[in-house]
Design a protein around this nucleic acid. Structure first.
Lengths: 282, 282
DNA sequence: GAAGCAAAAATTGTATACGATTTTTGCTTG
DNA sequence: CAAGCAAAAATCGTATACAATTTTTGCTTC
């Protein structure tokens, strides 16, 4: 949580609308035109993760949605760790918005399962349990293969080109060792397939599952080796090129089972003794 | 919160509330104590629909959740028709809450797909299209059989008793020709199965799908004959008693396909000419 | 010193006020 | 009398103020 440092510094004088707003304007400048999506961290013409995940929230376009997407992105790219607390004031200062707007955004994120809100205790990034992790990947293994089959049946040349570009972007991110971005793109790949299948219900489910998967990976991923299974995406693309629905189904299913098995879900209970235990040895 | 009753009475000077308000006030009578859930129409010890659908919203307990559940119930029981507009002020008056709370509730309902919110244009009960209807039932046919199989594997005697009582409640509602309640209970039966399966991800999905189904049925149901397929639920119960997962899977699947086919999804486009067309003949 | 308790600070919950946008209404005009 | 336009009403979006709750802090006491 790098933001905390700045916060404490700023907040010393208690509220400082001047600075807060200045910063906010900087960030939220492109409200209407979303081209201002931080070109520095958005190399090439690869799709911005922020764009791909748009349809998830049932908020009308506006500042609240904007904040939603920014926070979601931060979570998906693992810049915000599970468990991090998000105070309304803090978020409001960072993005230069009032608490009303921030609250709306936080609630939307809570609805999609990325945050947890407890009464009078604020919002914090969700921490899926081991059980949750199993459930999420089980559900993905049921739904996504079905969707892949459907996508294969109606994929267009333009879609194929987009998927191909997407895979290249993934490779680039990996080459740059930008794991956060690579992971986000990897999830976006699945979401794009859901979009191609033209099934909004499945698409919404998958979007929700994938954002949750991102949290799960942050907590339980144990494969420093990797290359992140990018060849599974290649194989999927091949199946799509051939419009082979059954193959797409099978590849997707084994891909997800593989992902599932890449998690370390053994530790039955992650004790909450973080502090006492951590300092016991010294 | 309770003080609001007076408020709503006052403000009724203007507006043209008409039937809508009269009906609503009737509903809001027992706000704080949920035991006031109309014991007359709640025979035996059957579960109240309001309770069964609780876990759907990610709102901390409080007035907002309360309003959420009431509105959801009204929609599920078809007392609120698809397309009905819900003004923030109006809802606030009815339940005696400020707009802040109401807004929160409406956003939660929008996120679960029951309402649609358009910027500066307020919320209205969603009107699923024919395409949506197909998607929802397709998804249910994929997920619910899987969940039924899982439920069969871990169902307890207490669960069985509850399901049995539930079916009886459905029969009673049908005997009373209380279709709204019968439909709500029918949906709740499916949700209860999802609960028994102990899979929160599937449970959330199914809850969302079933509430949407309720809207779809309001729009496209065409079977005045009926008895509402209650014997399918009987057959499911039998399979559960025998702990026969495969049978439960098969029965659930055919049950859902049957429901799907009971809809009139032929009219490709439902013209928006409601008024002009409706008054053309006279 | 550790435990208990009280005051203070921080944070969230809610209502309300004001500005912005949409929708309606009523007038003018061809 | 239909169409276009302007004023009014209604409704939503957002910020801010105040109340309620939680968390922290500092003191007292054993």
């Amino acid at each position: 949580m790098p933001s905390s440092a700045t916060k404490s510094a700023k907040k010393s004088t208690k509220k400082s609308p001047g600075q807060a707003n200045a910063r906010a304007t900087d960030q939220a400048s492109g409200q209407t035109s979303s081209k201002t999506v931080d070109p520095a961290t958005n190399p090439a013409n690869a799709p911005s993760p922020a764009e791909g995940f748009n349809g998830a929230f049932s908020l009308p376009p506006g500042p609240a949605l904007e904040i939603c997407l920014r926070l979601q992105n931060a979570i998906i790219e693992h810049r915000l760790q599970p468990g991090t607390r998000l105070s309304e004031d803090e978020v409001g200062e960072i993005y230069g918005a009032g608490r009303t707007v921030v609250r709306s955004a936080l609630q939307a994120l809570a609805h999609s399962g990325l945050l947890e809100i407890r009464r009078n205790r604020g919002a914090s990034v969700a921490k899926p349990t081991v059980g949750d992790a199993h459930e999420v990947f089980e559900a993905r293994a049921l739904i996504e293969p079905e969707v892949a089959r459907r996508a294969a049946a109606r994929i267009s040349d333009a879609d194929l080109a987009r998927l191909k570009a997407h895979i290249e972007a993934e490779h680039e991110a990996l080459a740059d060792s930008d794991m956060g971005r690579a992971l986000a793109l990897s999830g976006l790949f699945h979401i794009e397939i859901a979009g191609i299948a033209e099934h909004s219900v499945y698409a919404a489910m998958i979007q929700s599952l994938i954002t949750k998967s991102s949290l799960i990976i942050a907590l339980y991923w144990v494969r420093p080796d990797t290359a992140c299974e990018s060849h599974a995406h290649h194989a999927l693309l091949d199946a799509f090129v051939k419009k082979d629905g059954d193959a797409a189904h099978a590849i997707m299913r084994s891909h997800l089972i593989d992902l599932h098995s890449g998690l370390n879900l053994k530790p039955p209970v992650r004790k909450e003794t973080s502090l006492a235990e951590a300092l016991a040895g010294g």
